[in-house]
Design a protein around this nucleic acid. Structure first.
Length: 182
DNA sequence: CCCTGATTCGC
DNA sequence: GCGAATCAGG
């Protein structure tokens, strides 16, 4: 499976709605949970959960096979790794619509240098992205890069809403048009 | 064990 | 760019 525009838009929407990577993978089909996480990362939609370890080490060890892995593991155990304080990172999150400087730009086909700050409720037709030049940090323009550092989403509230409409769906009812994102 | 996301790096 | 392998953690 390839990440065409359709699937990418679908993934983006689900991720912004608070679905987990494995949920997104199951619903999309043909992709693994890791594939979803990788894609989300490359899209600049991270991050939701605090880093599970210092950024400097970890990940896939060079080479493959258990022997190589053991060597790496042994080296890590022997080397005293300074515990970096896991800097509480606020998640970049969809802001209220009425506080936006600029409404929406096009859908997911925005260029590689466009700000990816989501605007509006995912699931509604007016949902889009900022689209201004990404002269800020990360995937955002200067303003939204700054905004992302000051705003934090209530993860519990979002999860509760996702749980709600998942239950509605399982009850064979219609899914709400939108999930309030704040 | 189940799950979560994060990270690296061969491809 | 992609994603399996591997990580830390709830």
């Amino acid at each position: 499976m390839d990440w065409n525009e359709e699937r990418t838009a679908q993934l983006t929407k689900m991720w912004l709605e608070g679905m987990s990577a494995s949920q997104c993978a199951r619903q999309l089909g043909g992709v693994s949970r890791n594939a979803v996480i990788g894609k989300v990362h490359r899209l600049g939609l991270d991050s939701r959960q605090a880093p599970s370890r210092p950024r400097s080490l970890g990940g896939r060890p060079a080479g493959s096979g258990r022997a190589a892995a053991n060597v790496v593991q042994a080296h890590r155990s022997a080397t005293t790794v300074p515990t970096i304080t896991p800097a509480p990172r606020p998640a970049p999150v969809a802001p209220p619509v009425n506080l936006e400087l600029k409404p929406t730009t096009n859908l997911l086909s925005l260029g590689g240098h466009a700000c990816r700050w989501p605007i509006g409720d995912p699931g509604t037709s007016d949902f889009g992205f900022c689209g201004r030049p990404r002269d800020g940090v990360g995937s955002y323009c200067a303003d939204h890069a700054q905004t992302s550092l000051r705003r934090k989403r209530s993860e519990a509230a979002v999860n509760a809403e996702v749980e709600y409409w998942l239950k509605q769906a399982s009850d064979n009812r219609r899914r709400p048009d939108s999930i309030a994102v704040r």
